[in-house]
């Protein structure tokens, strides 16, 4: 075997491996959908507390979070039926976000309903969990900027712990926009631009 042939073969292997691994690339839609739902929920909670309409708050959240889960479950089965290959990284990310979602749902609903978690403690706790999810996701995707978003979630948690009250809804809504919806849009644009042809091809 000649040197040139060996180089060509190594390059071909690298290219195929790179292309095959693209199936773990996130399209960002899940980030945007969940981000918008929670954003709407936080703003609604803010005004519900401001106008003392406490009874509506829980129902708004039930509708929003049920909608989010319905979207997640349907899109999981739709993607799964079309999926022709799976990666360990994809399985880790899927497991991470499902377990994170369940944990946040429990903290958000069971915590306050059982009176074991105060209403204003929910958002900093959820911020801490999101920090973990973003940190691990960033490492698995190999995207430093996603990993760095974790610092924002953790810093926000510290602020909300020290400054509890109605303002936490507003802070969390702003964090959702900055640390989830906008990154979700960036991921979506990146996915559309770079990866869609490779996945369909």
């Amino acid at each position: 075997m000649e040197k040139q042939q060996a180089e060509l073969e190594i390059n071909m292997i690298k290219k195929i491996m790179e292309d095959s691994r693209k199936i773990v690339i996130e399209d960002g839609i899940g980030y945007i959908v969940w981000g918008l739902l929670v954003f709407v929920g936080m703003i609604s909670s803010y005004f519900a507390v401001l106008t003392k309409q406490y009874n509506y708050t829980i129902w708004i959240w039930v509708i929003l979070i049920s909608g989010g889960w319905a979207y997640t479950i349907i899109s999981y089965f739709l993607k799964d039926s079309k999926k022709k290959a799976s990666t360990l990284a994809g399985k880790i990310l899927g497991g991470l976000w499902i377990s994170t979602g369940i944990s946040m749902t429990l903290i958000g609903f069971v915590g306050p309903l059982s009176h074991s978690i105060g209403g204003y403690t929910v958002t900093p706790l959820i911020s801490i969990i999101l920090g973990i999810a973003y940190f691990v996701s960033g490492i698995v995707y190999g995207q430093g900027w996603i990993r760095n978003l974790a610092s924002g979630w953790w810093a926000g948690a510290v602020v909300m712990f020290f400054w509890p009250g109605i303002n936490t809804f507003f802070i969390f809504a702003a964090m959702m926009a900055l640390l989830q919806i906008i990154p979700g849009i960036i991921l979506y644009l990146k996915f559309k631009k770079e990866y869609r042809p490779a996945i369909n091809g």
């Binding site: 071909m12 195929i16 491996m17 095959s20 691994r21 199936i23 290959a85 799976s86 990666t87 994809g90």
Partner: peptide
């Protein structure tokens, strides 16, 4: 070689 390059990159395909 190409088949192996694909399969080493994914869990299963």
């Amino acid at each position: 070689t190409a088949i192996m390059a694909v399969l080493i990159s994914v869990d299963e395909a």
